[in-house]
Design a protein around this nucleic acid. Structure first.
Lengths: 208, 208
DNA sequence: GTCTATAGAGGGATAGAC
DNA sequence: GTCTATCCCTCTATAGAC
């Protein structure tokens, strides 16, 4: 990876964060990266291809940096704690914003759609792995589709990030409430056998 | 409201759905609306002001059309059923996409940020009112911040819509799983007094 | 209110020198 | 690989005829 390619990728992420997908261009990227505008096309062919590459790199890079922590988690409580740290760091770094902006741009360009789909998949696989390990033997796993839950969590993070862009206080409340929901799962998970039976029959009825 | 203003507002919503915030312009809007491009500026001053107006109108219009149904809901189960219908209709009509795209554009223009914030608030107030009515006396309300939950639900819908743009199947699974979560709330809500006590103490511990 | 025409800026992309 | 220069297009916004 040459130095210029790296500068362009970083400049793209920075520009996505500050101006969004609607305000990005080869010129603004080059300016943020401190390189010549023509290099965007020499190295990546087009602006959208560069954005797609930056999105992919950002996702794999961030997920890799959290993998070790995810592997150490042994309870929903711990997962929540890791999730809190992760969320704070990612918000600070603006990586969720990048993904959200690329997803918004997917409406315009197929290469952005593909990159957004892949970046999302990278996060989802990671979340799914942890959830499957933690909820494997739990009655909650019988009631809730774990792969679906992983996708739901990823989607919620995206939505909260968009919310945060226009109302940080409201977004903070949203996040806290969803965190409390996960505690609810843990609570149900720890209920006695009697309550578990009630839960199972209730869930069965609910699904019809 | 003149005919042309109406055409422009509708054309804006349609263009946001098909091209996204990154692909919209006075020309594409005018083309979709079937009117002259200069009329965008005559009636709304700027493209962003037009988008903001369309976003506000879309939100109030849609929420008003659901208000009667929300008022009739008397259980979480019924709320979920209304939510399912609402989600299917809004996805079909593309109204959530509109809001998501405006939120993405908020990064570029303050007037879009204001419109997105207001549109979100309109939905949140509606959800919050129903939740407060349904969960008022429940132990769940003591454990979970209801205004926060309303914001979390709104954010999740936004996120799922963005997900849907790049992976409809994954988004569908995400939605189903989050729906099952709401059933979980109902289950806990209906637990016996013993289980409720366990929940309360568990929640207290979790929040520390 | 609506149209044409256009100014003026910015954007994607390429050619060609180095 | 990098730079300058540039073509050509699209964009916002306005002026002025109707």
């Amino acid at each position: 990876m040459t130095d210029t390619r790296c500068k362009l990728l970083d400049g793209t992420l920075e520009t996505l964060r500050t101006k969004g997908i609607a305000g990005i261009s080869a010129r603004t990227i080059a300016s943020a990266a401190g390189v010549n505008q023509a290099l965007v096309f020499y190295h990546f062919g087009s602006v959208d291809e560069l954005i797609a590459a930056a999105c992919r790199e950002s996702a794999t890079d961030r997920v890799r940096s959290y993998r070790a922590q995810f592997l150490e988690v042994t309870s929903l409580r711990e997962l929540l704690a890791v999730g809190r740290v992760l969320h704070a760091q990612e918000r600070e770094a603006g990586n969720v914003t990048v993904l959200a902006q690329v997803l918004a741009g997917a409406e315009r360009d197929p290469s952005l759609a593909a990159a957004g789909r892949e970046a999302l998949a990278v996060w989802v696989i990671e979340i799914e792995t942890v959830l499957h390990r933690l909820l494997g033997g739990s009655p909650v796993a019988a009631a809730i589709d774990v792969p679906g839950l992983a996708r739901g969590i990823a989607a919620s993070f995206i939505g909260i990030e968009m919310y945060d862009g226009v109302d940080p206080v409201g977004a903070e409340h949203a996040l806290s409430a969803l965190e409390q929901l996960s505690v609810l799962i843990e609570v149900v998970d720890d209920l006695g056998p009697l309550a578990r039976r009630a839960l199972r029959s209730r869930m069965r009825r609910a699904s019809h």
